[in-house]
Design a protein around this nucleic acid. Sequence first.
DNA 1: CTGAAAGCGCTTACAG
DNA 2: CTGAAAGCGCTTACAG
Lengths: 324, 324
Amino acid sequence: MGGVTSADVARESGVSRTTVSYVLNDKAGVSVSPSTRRRVLETAARLGYAPSAAARALRSGRSDLVLCVLPDWPVGPVVETMLDHLADELAERDLSVLVHHVRGDRPLAHLWRAVTPRTVVGLAPFDPADVRAMRQAGVQVVGDDVDSAEAAALEDPQPRIGRMQAERLISRGRRRLGYATTDDRRVSDFAERRLAGVRAACVEHGLAEPLVIPVRVDPGSAASAVAAWTQADVDGVAAYNDEVAFAVLAGARDAALAVPADLAVIGVDDVPLAALASPPLTTVTQSIEHEASYLAACVLAALDGEAPPTRPHDPPTLVARESA
Amino acid sequence: MGGVTSADVARESGVSRTTVSYVLNDKAGVSVSPSTRRRVLETAARLGYAPSAAARALRSGRSDLVLCVLPDWPVGPVVETMLDHLADELAERDLSVLVHHVRGDRPLAHLWRAVTPRTVVGLAPFDPADVRAMRQAGVQVVGDDVDSAEAAALEDPQPRIGRMQAERLISRGRRRLGYATTDDRRVSDFAERRLAGVRAACVEHGLAEPLVIPVRVDPGSAASAVAAWTQADVDGVAAYNDEVAFAVLAGARDAALAVPADLAVIGVDDVPLAALASPPLTTVTQSIEHEASYLAACVLAALDGEAPPTRPHDPPTLVARESA
DNA sequence: CTGAAAGCGCTTACAG
DNA sequence: CTGAAAGCGCTTACAG
């Protein structure tokens, strides 16, 4: 039932468990005679021995697991790509990435205690109490705003994204902007911060407040939003993300509006389908690879007890296609 | 350093660790006086006690973790939704779902040994040697084809999906079909099985072999595929999935082909954006909720030592929109 | 160079 | 109704 233990290997090769442990872990500073070493290695292989991670974790309080905690927002291709990169980079250090989607209000403590990860990476800020508890238990905590919510707020990239959208629209001659926000509560914070950037750009360019309308990802919702914008002479719409932009595009189509001539539309994310939209969607994107590398570097630095690397200055970029 | 332990709770509430354990685990057959019970519970809450899973796993050989192993294929909204449902259903039994994306050829053993999960759920078949090892270590294994690759093959739903696509196209008067397959090696197996269904339907209806062309999710690739189909008088295209279908739609648009009049297009999955395509995408979908419930039921059954439930007969359904 | 022993935090027979 | 004690498998000072 319970597999082969180090005691089995020790008995079988006629040495103590200590020696087995030394050999198997290549313990530095201890020299084991070559013949013994060989015998132990051979026996372990023959018996198919694999150490119990539970025991090891209990003993040493650490594991080779990196727990990645995702907030409860919808995870699109962007986050997924990021996780892939992260896993790749950490794999080189023999770290396995485990992903957990936070559901409802189940306490986080249950989870990280259950996993005993070496590091916990959060994609949204943790509860400070959770951070404290994890740190106290010797778990590295890495992530957005873990240490300084203020610092993060100062360099929040979201408003820049919104600003960039607005500036593109304005540079294309748009004079009255609309904002297609999401009705998904879980990300309304994001939407709000992006919208702030749009607002700021409007103010700077002497334009009126953007007309904000929530748009669901379905044709009907988009149609009525487009009607309202048309009514208000809106000629350019910045969407919360590419999905919402697709909806706006569909709404414009239904209303027989030409894009971008009658209504320009710009999204955020550059999802794979963006290039295939009708017309191809102009959008703003952040370099996911950079962000992932940064996160990986944070994890590695924490592991090596080094100071966290400085966040790369990673401005969003415009992907200019036809819709705006 | 090491967080709050049950000994702390015991000391603080003036009882033994035994009692703490009994209370916290609601141990059946043991009666603890209500006042003691309350005191322990209260102290545990106040101290923020969470049991060390490592110790628990070491002691009992089991944990509350369900490890969900995803194959190396691109995970779209479909799989994501499924995982969400699974997590929801298992959360009711206090099981936490952890997701691991298989990367490259790193051995699976390392991972499940490190996690010591109660159950491992595979979304693609495991290596039989892995299954054997996990079972031997007392880890439940649940997933596609775990026990009987043949049985699974018999009721493989993929060909039915392809067949359904073809039949829709044929019922709309299409006489020469094309198949837009993926060039992603990781899912070519899926594509092949779906294509088999398309082929079968063509044979049955006395049509020629479908003209198979790989289509990448970019405008250029789609354009040349559409050109080839046009050349061959293809008037209906079944796509491997909705993403590929979007590409075909874009290609048709570039070629000034009317959809569905000149070229009908049908996808698979019904991703959120499908309804927003131009024209709205007709597609075939499987009930993810059902599949997720089935998987959850398998996990729960394994947990309770019951026989696995029979797989629900869950035929794919057609979502008829305008593109076909 | 190698071994006996302690202890990580938990659960569970076994005594009271 | 409650507690003292053993033991899960491992690593690591500490002795030889």
